[in-house]
């Protein structure tokens, strides 16, 4: 039982575009609607699409679960450490210590409409990336593990 060629090839073509769109939503989280959670969910939907389209193959080689688990842990650690770094630098937990410093993501922004500068936001883009990685990996791991532990009927036609 496997999916038809149309489903598999369409999933293969759409997968990079879905991942790029999710990465765009994550990276521009402080400028446009969206953010870490939304972009991570979009990217996880790409992984689930791949999972559904190629469900007759070996899922372990297609989507490496262990790497995804490591990515999830890395995201949560990056989130916590970027918050803890403010304590080390002498202010409160979760203080935005990168904003208006001129360093990475530190360009000052004036009040009012502007076209949206990517190099702003202080620690917000860092946390967006961390949460995006974590949501991507977490939802993918949940889908893959539920998929591998059941006996899924892929629903395609017999070939």
């Amino acid at each position: 039982m496997k999916q038809s060629n149309i489903v598999r090839i369409t999933a293969d073509i759409m997968f990079p575009f879905i991942m790029i769109f999710g990465a765009y939503v994550v990276l521009h989280g402080h400028l446009t609607p969206g953010g870490g959670f939304q972009g991570g969910a979009v990217m996880a939907s790409g992984v689930v699409l791949l999972l559904i389209a190629h469900c007759d193959k070996d899922i372990k080689t297609l989507i490496p679960t262990q790497i995804l688990k490591n990515v999830e842990t890395f995201g949560l650690l990056l989130f916590g450490l970027s918050a803890l770094a403010a304590v080390i630098l002498g202010s409160g937990f979760f203080t935005n210590w990168l904003v208006n410093t001129g360093l990475l993501f530190g360009t000052p922004v004036e009040y009012g409409p502007n076209p949206g500068y990517l190099n702003t936001g202080g620690v917000i883009p860092v946390m967006n990336i961390a949460v995006g990685l974590e949501v991507l990996a977490a939802l993918s791991v949940i889908a893959v593990i539920m998929f591998r532990s059941t006996e899924p009927d892929c629903g395609g036609e017999e070939q």
């Binding site: 989280g29 402080h30 400028l31 446009t32 609607p33 969206g34 953010g35 870490g36 989130f79 918050a83 979760f94 935005n96 904003v99 208006n100 993501f105 530190g106 360009t107 000052p108 922004v109 004036e110 009040y111 009012g112 502007n114 949206g116 702003t120 936001g121 202080g122 620690v123 917000i124 946390m127 967006n128 949460v131």
Partner: peptide, 22 residues
């Protein structure tokens, strides 16, 4: 916008003002 540098106020609230919730 001035304090966090982000144009998206929702993300500013979620990731800066109320980051404990996140």
């Amino acid at each position: 916008q001035v304090q966090t540098g982000g144009n998206n106020i929702c993300t500013d609230v979620v990731f800066d003002f109320r980051a404990f919730d996140t």
